[in-house]
């Protein structure tokens, strides 16, 4: 009988310990981001480009999380795929979505006017912002953010297409580059990372 009681104390004690350990690990383990984490000491380079409602600077959005995407409106496959995932992320974020600003920078200033980029991105989500600039301005911003793009003439009706880095750059509330999402990151994963950044 006494032996039996010892057995049950040990048994329940072990269970409690394991449970506590699991809880603590789950509670205190570092969050694992889906995107690639960047630790930079320098704030994200500021820029001013033209939107449909006048000039817009990155620094205008300090206090919000900014998602930068470089694309172009003639792009029928890659850009809408990414913008659809960003739209999905906004849906998942719900009320927190107003703490996130998506900005698409056109890498095709020849064809994309500020109005055209704006109409394009708004189709995906009403608060998305589209900006463009002179070819020199675009080149400068793209270089600062490590974005490659290249105009390539192709045979056929398209005239030319743009090859471009299709990643999404996340600038945190304090204006530092925090994350990079590769092409094809699901909207749910993007939302989870942004939710963590909003809450911490």
């Amino acid at each position: 009988m006494l032996r039996n009681r010892h057995f049950w104390f040990g048994f329940i004690g072990t269970l409690l310990l394991v449970g506590l350990g699991w809880w603590a690990w789950d509670r205190f383990r570092p969050y694992a981001f889906h995107g690639t984490v960047l630790q930079s000491n320098e704030p994200a380079p500021d820029f001013t480009l033209m939107s449909a409602n006048g000039p817009v600077s990155l620094s205008d959005f300090r206090g919000k999380i900014v998602l930068l995407y470089f694309g172009y409106t003639f792009c029928p496959d890659v850009c809408p795929t990414t913008l659809t995932e960003l739209k999905r992320a906004m849906e998942v974020l719900g009320d927190d979505a107003d703490q996130v600003q998506v900005i698409m920078v056109s890498v095709d200033p020849e064809r994309d006017t500020p109005e055209k980029v704006q109409e394009y991105v708004e189709y995906f989500w009403p608060t998305f912002l589209g900006v463009t600039g002179t070819p020199d301005q675009i080149a400068e911003v793209a270089t600062q953010y490590g974005i490659y793009y290249e105009k390539r003439e192709v045979p056929g009706a398209t005239g030319y297409l743009m090859d471009h880095t299709a990643t999404v750059t996340v600038v945190d509330k304090d204006g530092y580059i925090k994350l990079i999402f590769p092409f094809g990151t699901p909207g749910e994963d993007i939302a989870a990372d942004l939710k963590y950044l909003i809450d911490h």
Binding site: D77, V78, R152, V154, G156, L161, D163, T165, A166, F183
Partner: peptide, 21 residues
């Protein structure tokens, strides 16, 4: 559509996305 072409998107070296006929 005005014109139709068969295209493919593909990943270039360095992770950039390109599109080509």
């Amino acid at each position: 559509c005005g014109t139709i072409e068969l295209h493919e998107s593909y990943m270039k070296e360095g992770g950039a996305m390109g599109m080509r006929p």
